[in-house]
Design a protein around this nucleic acid. Structure first.
Lengths: 247, 247
DNA sequence: CGGAATCCTTGACCCAGATCAAGTGTAAGA
DNA sequence: TCTTACACTTGATCTGGGTCAAGGATTCCG
């Protein structure tokens, strides 16, 4: 892993997100073709990257930073429908328009590919199409798991679910070992958490305090979270308590 | 459209669900290959087609009848995460296990393909892979739209959203014209509706009564629904009221 | 240093929807 | 015809989370 403040590699084969990216299994010729249509874009925290309905002329992956996919009703109610962490893919090959607002939650760098040539490359390269299907199925699974959270879980369970997802993602990206207490900085404001969980920011704040009081999490400042016992957190989330990699 | 009680065509090219199925754009040789790995299965209302976690050795489409994808927590809370209507695809190419319980809500007939040979055919036939990606993206869009329903809509809006989705689907399958009042039979019990919407069956019942009292829908018996004004229903659902094909 | 803007916390109160509890069709079976 | 069962409705009451409101803690800026 690179240190924070890393410089971005100009070569796709060294791309920091290569391990989950579309180009993970490409040979050198394919990588060269990807290089030709690749470029980086960066956005500041709070910037809207794409508006729902806008023509979207690229696909890509998040290199660093966090973005959210959100839907908004006319009266302003908003629901976050996806969370884009480093290495996540953005874009809908074969679709012209964006279906959601994509908003940078932190400063963010994205590795983009021009859409048309990317689609051509995809058509000509079965394993890229295959990889995209795989990633889309993953997203579908995540979306459906979230439907259970939104439809049937209590506020406390929702918070615990969110924390365990963020913690797990963080761990799988290697910033944490897979044992011992888990430590991370929440990449979301209380309001963003509320929009993800279908709650109000006040309820999020109250439940965070309650989980803290009950020793499920520790909080330093507003964002720095320590989870002394991942199994406990997952019980609170109402999940099967096998704990995955955390035992 | 065939009459109810239709006989099932033995040829994929005449498959009643061909218009949305994977084989929609196949040439005759590919259709022949699909024929070789195709078979039909039928299930009775209430039967579980696949249990979450089970090995799933086929993919396929719904020919007639309705099935649901559901997730259940240990304490019995359940959330429906997908509704399979005729022509919908089931299965996760490249995945061994089922991620959800698939339950027949009515008697149902499915057009199945053995998974392994289907995957091989998919790898060899780019436009099938392409079609699958397209369908998966559609499902992802639907799942995310449902996240907004679950997270941010009121009970009344949820019911209206469900009715408008079922009505729209019904219309697109040609059982209704695209203008005038829309008429259909609800394929779900009040309890199933509740599980889809993250509500209790009592709340579903109450809101159905309220929508009826307010003239948004008409009800004959418990299941037969008439929607005199689709635009009105969509307003009640809190959607952008352009109304799509319904003007 | 003193605003003032963000983001967060906490309290008091309220209400939409859950829960608990009777019923009301309607259809199948004896 | 009665009876059991299932799907649904409706009423009464309760409560989790929403709403409204008042601060507190940082950070930025003059």
């Amino acid at each position: 892993m690179n240190a924070p403040g890393q410089t971005i590699s100009p070569s796709c084969s060294d791309c920091p997100i290569r391990h989950r990216a579309v180009c993970a299994r490409c040979d050198s010729e394919e990588l060269e073709q990807l290089e030709a249509i690749k470029y980086y874009r960066s956005f500041e925290a709070g910037q809207t990257i794409i508006w729902s309905g806008d023509k979207m002329d690229f696909v890509g992956s998040v290199v660093s930073g966090i973005a959210t996919l959100t839907q908004t009703m006319e009266d302003g109610r908003t629901q976050m429908v996806g969370l884009l962490l480093p290495s996540d893919f953005v874009g809908r090959p074969g679709r012209d328009g964006a279906a959601y607002d994509v908003v940078a939650t932190t400063d963010i760098v994205m590795c983009c590919f021009r859409r048309k040539p990317f689609e051509q490359l995809m058509d000509a390269t079965p394993h890229i199409a295959h990889r995209l299907l795989e990633m889309t199925l993953d997203e579908l699974d995540a979306a459906r798991e979230w439907m259970l959270v939104l439809g049937r879980k209590t506020a406390r369970e929702k918070i615990a679910s969110l924390l365990s997802i963020i913690g797990r993602r963080d761990a799988s990206l290697g910033t944490n070992g897979s044992s011992g207490p888990m430590v991370f900085d929440l990449p979301l404001t209380r309001e963003a958490m509320a929009d993800y969980l279908g709650l109000t920011l006040e309820t999020v704040s109250r439940q965070m305090s309650a989980l803290k009081k009950d020793g499920v999490i520790r909080l330093e400042g507003k964002r720095h979270v320590t989870i002394p016992d991942m199994g406990r957190l997952m019980e609170e989330a109402g999940d099967d308590s096998d704990g995955g990699v955390f035992g």
